[in-house]
Design a protein around this nucleic acid. Structure first.
Lengths: 193, 193
DNA sequence: GTGTATCTTGAACGTACATTCAAAATTAAC
DNA sequence: GTTAATTTTGAATGTACGTTCAAGATACAC
């Protein structure tokens, strides 16, 4: 017997950071060995191959993001102020030069689209779950009397998700941080109106 | 003397279609030779290298899109009905299985981000010009009395561009064509309100 | 018709990549 | 301390890629 020596969560976080920074195909195994500190053989032993490491990273990513999400909305009484911070956290990184700007899910989906059904499916499911989480939150906001019944929580969630995708793409084309902040506020107003 | 034998516009349209379908790095020179009918040497003679062909394709893409845009807005008296068709044309392809779904500019920018300053600059400039074109149209709408003066044409254009980016990304994650149509209408109402 | 400049052809080259594997190192059990 | 099981190591492998180039084909000028 002998157990693995590396910290799996740490390895996956380093891997996801690398995938986010370079994209899937431009993330070479060499970059991954450097980022994770693991040798090729260890990666293949633990995750089967590069795609396996991506899928494991995606899983970890979703787990981390979910925890953040739950925590944020548990901390706030009203949905509006939680969503304000949520959107702010999305826009914020674009002011600095962090590698964590982009969303691993959408970035990878855009790159892989139509080339690998398994990965596409996993990413779609995760993004779908994200929309569902937002819908639940908006549903709660309705029951708390924060927002009306039309548009429905589902329709509001869809518009919000679309807006978030748009915000991220817009941010990658522009350095106008003020505009980003304005757009995110405008988006929130529209969704909660 | 001897002039080139291929139709440059046709070659570039085939190339851009391939880049859109597979993304830049997954578009091999072999795929490009098959798509364009040109041999490797001819491509390198005419466009220097793969990146040169991408840049030429982007230029052609922007030229084509611009002509469509000008024509569409010249055909309609009021801006609203032109924008309705414009958004419809964006959402439409996602119902079918066309390779022309995605935007060559945003797809390539997302993939190449931070890896090639020249390409990034060209793509950013083109996307900026796209926003400016929308701003001009919205400015015209204001002068024609279709919309008010606040938010400004610039702010409206930014929100619309964000929405279009979001629509495209959302479309790549969902098969709900009805939702897409609803989102595009909701977006337009918000922008023209 | 001849010459010449230019384009076309596609095989060949070097490189970078994902992956494999056998040997070495490490751990845990008894 | 010895053994057995598992992981770590990193060089080696095969493949796919972007690119080059020299030979051949073609069109124009005179």
């Amino acid at each position: 017997m002998r157990s693995a020596e590396f910290d799996k969560e740490h390895v996956l976080r380093q891997a996801m950071r690398t995938f986010m920074q370079y994209g899937y195909s431009k993330t070479s195994m060499q970059k991954l060995t450097e980022a994770t500190g693991l040798h090729p053989g260890s990666i293949y032993c633990a995750f089967k191959n590069k795609k396996g490491l991506l899928l494991a990273s995606v899983e970890q990513y979703q787990k981390d993001k979910n925890e953040q999400f739950e925590q944020l909305f548990a901390q706030h009484q009203n949905v509006r102020s939680a969503l304000e911070i949520f959107l702010q956290d999305i826009v914020q990184p674009y002011a600095s030069n962090e590698a964590t700007k982009v969303c691993l899910l959408t970035r990878t989906l855009s790159e892989i689209d139509g080339q690998d059904d398994e990965v596409t499916q996993v990413l779609s499911n995760n993004l779908c779950a994200f929309e569902q989480a937002l819908q639940n939150v908006l549903s709660k906001a309705h029951h708390c009397g924060e927002i009306g019944s039309t548009p429905s929580a589902k329709e509001r969630a869809q518009f919000l998700v679309m807006g978030i995708y748009g915000l991220r793409t817009y941010a990658s084309t522009s350095n106008d941080q003020q505009a980003l902040v304005r757009l995110s506020k405008q988006l929130l107003e529209h969704v909660l109106q």
